[in-house]
Design a binder for these strands. Structure first.
Lengths: 259, 259
DNA sequence: CGCGGTCTTGACAGACATCAATTTCAGTGG
DNA sequence: CCACTGAAATTGATGTCTGTCAAGACCGCG
């Protein structure tokens, strides 16, 4: 697995979503990072632990998950290269879920201490990193909507739209094709259904010619139709940091007195 | 509705979850706040807007919600006094959901500008406010689990356990009694079911003598039993900022080379 | 008093879970 | 080289949770 300098990867990612001054980039360059290869299913951090480092995903996939009392696993999010899924452990402890590798992956560990020092010095970097954790939050909200309002077929379609869109954003999907080593059990645990039902829904997506899915290769044949069945809109991913100029008046002026 | 000095309210809240130096408290005291009374269902910020102020809830309830393409409303979170539900708008724009009043409420608006200046100056306050947005995130994760893994009865029980626990944390619930002006339609829209089914599940909770629910008054008669049927554990609320001393070794030392 | 919102109840249908078994296929060892 | 193995995918039959449709009861409000 060819892996570039992880700092470069992180800088590219941050540049894609926000403007980064040269000084900020230099700060990032100076961060200590320890690259590591992980096997499939390797647990990076577990619920209850208090990590002292963060994990930048360089290659492959990670996923967050939590096991409820009955041993049932719920997958909470997927992560693509450039993500720092446990960035939030800088400020919130202990971990309230697990972080594991989906397939083999390459990560770079960054100790908390230098990261904290860097952020304390730079409001602009704080803004960018804080924002990353907020985008994360937005994804959870969308998952709540997906689970609350949509049927099984729609949920799986939505999941695939999200992964494809995020993979495209980091240049890892071409013509709707990307790698995704999730089993149907994983899909079921992420979308809140049984593997049997997940299987039937996936077959339906295939039958409708929306995608081809062999092993860990997915090809979305008709993205527009997939988005349609997923009722997917990518705004919640906040992929571009375009502060809209449309500042509509706040509700404040309309608020009345209580009856 | 008796409302104290909103700054005091915020400081008390922050002191409850983190240690706050006197200097930090003084910074908060200096923030400009504009108190306002809101009517039931009043929309504070809407999806797509780019607010230039945050909203501290002083009294009553707020809720976040999003309407999907079919006009279906999904409620994403509830907010109790002391919360700043749109704090994240400091760093993430535009809004990807709506924020409204559940019943009549009192809020205090804080302009972004002085808040940003304050946070840029104080790493400790940045830590606390950032952390608040991360706790938020943790709640969404729990909602995903609730929706993904649990049946209707459990989901409603979970919702009630969460609200009760959060109300207790801010001193607004006594002996399991608290005010909660959500209709059964609201409950249904929050838990991903129809109002009819929500009604039946609530009746079942009543029949099991777990609670009494009249209008906007709820009395949880048997919290232990309710937690049991909800499979509720409050750790995800991160109510106490107790950095555990249990720092277990990270997975880093175990990671092997790829096959 | 009539109106609309909220809560409640019943009958029926559909989505999804459960249980059970079979197929496929990559990895492994004789 | 090929049988063996176990994980993953697939198929079928059946039951249950939850949605849909329809209607009635309750209640605050103009």
């Amino acid at each position: 697995m060819a892996v570039g300098f992880p700092h470069t990867k992180l800088i590219a990612r941050l540049r894609a979503i926000a403007s980064l001054t040269d000084a900020d980039a230099a700060q990032i360059e100076a961060l200590p990072m320890k690259v590591q290869n992980l096997r499939d299913k390797h647990a990076i951090v577990r619920e209850g632990e208090v990590p002292d480092q963060c994990c930048l995903l360089v290659d492959g996939f990670l996923y967050r998950h939590k096991n409820d009392s009955g041993g049932q696993r719920q997958i909470l999010s997927w992560h693509v290269p450039g993500d720092i899924p446990d960035l939030y452990s800088l400020h919130l402890n202990p971990m309230d879920h697990n972080l594991s590798a989906l397939g083999s992956a390459v990560v770079a560990f960054i100790p908390h201490a230098p990261l904290k020092i860097m952020l304390d010095r730079s409001p602009s970097l704080t803004h960018i990193f804080w924002r990353e954790t907020l985008v994360d939050s937005s994804l959870f909200r969308e998952w709540v909507i997906s689970m609350g309002k949509h049927a099984g077929l729609t949920r799986i379609a939505h999941l695939l739209c999200e992964v494809l869109t995020r993979m495209r954003a980091v240049g890892l999907a071409h013509d709707g094709r990307f790698s995704f080593p999730a089993s149907q059990v994983d899909i079921a645990d992420a979308t809140g259904m049984t593997p049997i039902h997940a299987n039937r829904m996936i077959q339906q997506l295939r039958a409708r010619k929306l995608l081809v899915w062999n092993g860990d290769r997915i090809e979305v044949a008709d993205f527009d139709a997939l988005k349609e069945t997923a009722s997917f809109e990518d705004s919640y991913l906040h992929l571009r940091d375009n502060p809209q100029l449309v500042v509509r008046p706040l509700a404040s002026v309309q608020g009345g007195q209580l009856p």
